[in-house]
């Protein structure tokens, strides 16, 4: 009876102070929601998880046919074009799916939000993590492709996790911002597919960054995905595709700013989600 009982105080602005502690406290929920998303995604599909690999694989095939065979684009050095494209498509698809899943995550979990308390950050962060699982599978596919072409990466591959982290941060930041906006302004659910489609053209997926005219370069480098994709190529393809320092710095800066801004905006609007959704 005298054992100290946990005391919880609810008042305006209080959740703010306990936020990060709560986030830790609710970690089990975080795992289980991520697990749910993964399990549900491939339920009642005939080939199940294979979809995670088939989609990027077909994209790679199409890109190779269109850009390499038809448009006669070449990869720098003696890298097979298919590998050159894969090293870009794989991080790009991770970003695209993580970002769009995260942006719609709050709305598709509106039932939870209006009925149970937990730090809302769990939901979009969980969907980014879920996309990471598909991403791991596509990385395995990349390894198989490399084997097929008899291409062995060198020490640079050790830096790959850093670029994965950058892709993760970019997807999380953008996803948090858009999902928070999506709760209040439903317009943004039309904006997201547009951003994803548009992003594919302004990121170096089918081409290498060196083809971008110099006078546009500073602007082009602001795209966080430029750093991610060029980084991937550099790490996976023995540096055959050069990674320029200014690209890395500017896209990394944008990523950090984007991620911080996403978290800040999300936290700012989070309190009202249950009232608005």
């Amino acid at each position: 009876m005298n054992a100290p009982r946990p005391e919880l105080i609810i008042e305006a602005g209080r959740a703010e102070q306990q936020y990060w502690r709560d986030l830790w406290h609710f970690r089990e929920l975080f795992y289980i929601l991520a697990w749910r998303d993964i399990v549900v995604r491939y339920k009642q599909t005939v080939i199940g998880v294979a979809w995670a690999v088939i989609r990027p694989f077909l994209t790679i095939v199409v890109f190779t046919l269109v850009f390499n065979r038809v448009a006669k684009l070449e990869a720098p050095g003696d890298i097979p074009y298919a590998l050159f494209v894969s090293a870009a498509i794989i991080p790009w698809q991770f970003f695209a799916s993580a970002f769009s899943e995260a942006s719609s995550s709050l709305l598709s979990n509106s039932g939870l939000i209006s009925k149970v308390y937990f730090p809302r950050l769990i939901i979009p962060a969980g969907s980014v993590i879920t996309s990471l699982v598909d991403f791991a599978l596509t990385l395995a596919m990349l390894a198989v492709l490399m084997l097929w072409y008899g291409f062995a990466p060198d020490w640079r591959i050790l830096f790959l996790p850093l670029f994965i982290l950058q892709a993760f941060a970019a997807a999380l930041g953008a996803g948090l911002f858009l999902c928070a906006l999506n709760v209040k302004y439903r317009d943004f659910r039309y904006v997201v597919p547009f951003i994803v489609q548009f992003g594919l053209y302004v990121s170096p997926v089918g081409f290498g960054s060196e083809r971008v005219p110099q006078y546009l370069r500073w602007f082009y480098d602001l795209n966080p995905l430029v750093g991610v994709i060029e980084g991937f190529r550099w790490a996976c393809l023995k540096g055959a595709s050069p990674l320029e320092a200014r690209t890395l710095v500017s896209s990394l800066t944008v990523t950090i700013v984007l991620c911080a801004f996403g978290i800040w905006y999300f936290r700012k609007t989070e309190k009202t989600f249950a009232d608005v959704i």
Partner: peptide
């Protein structure tokens, strides 16, 4: 407010113990 889904505008609640709230059956 008791189940912390939304914050109060004024005032405070002190809860001395673990709270579980059931606003709906089968949430999630």
């Amino acid at each position: 407010i008791l189940s912390r889904i939304t914050e109060p505008t004024k005032g405070r609640i002190t809860l001395r113990g673990r709270v579980a709230s059931l606003l709906e059956v089968g949430t999630g």
